[in-house]
Amino acid sequence: MILEGQFTIPAPQDRVWSAIWDIPTLASWVPGCTSAAQVDATTYRAHLEQQVGFLKAAFDLLLTVVETQEPLLIRLHGEGEDRKIRSNIQAEITVKLEPAPDGTLLGYHIDVSVLGRLGALGFPLIQRKAKEIEAEFARRARAGLAGG
């Protein structure tokens, strides 16, 4: 499943870049992300909880920075597991920043696979949930950096 899009954040590019590397800030933009921490120079851990109706999933994610071009681009590889429902998630994430007349244009391309039981049964639901997360992430990022 490919998720891609772009939105403008009303803040200069260097400020957006800094916010992305401030892990608590970034985590606060992702709905359902209840904790996030740096493991080493290129590795981060995060816990992501999501719910569709009464169905719940909680993934422990390991995110690895694959490429960085300050202040333009980050590429990440992420993977995680929900042991309770025996499902896995894998994602290749690319985030690009470029100056825009009213701030910074943030473009993203996420190739995400959900494997295991959840993936077998719930693809349309995952897709819908991903769209919700996407919209909420953009809203929070804009709100978080507004006035910058």
């Binding site: 009464f54 169905l55 429902i85």
Partner: peptide, 9 residues
Amino acid sequence: ILIKHGVYV
């Protein structure tokens, strides 16, 4: 079905 598939616990 959801319980048997292990999606709902």
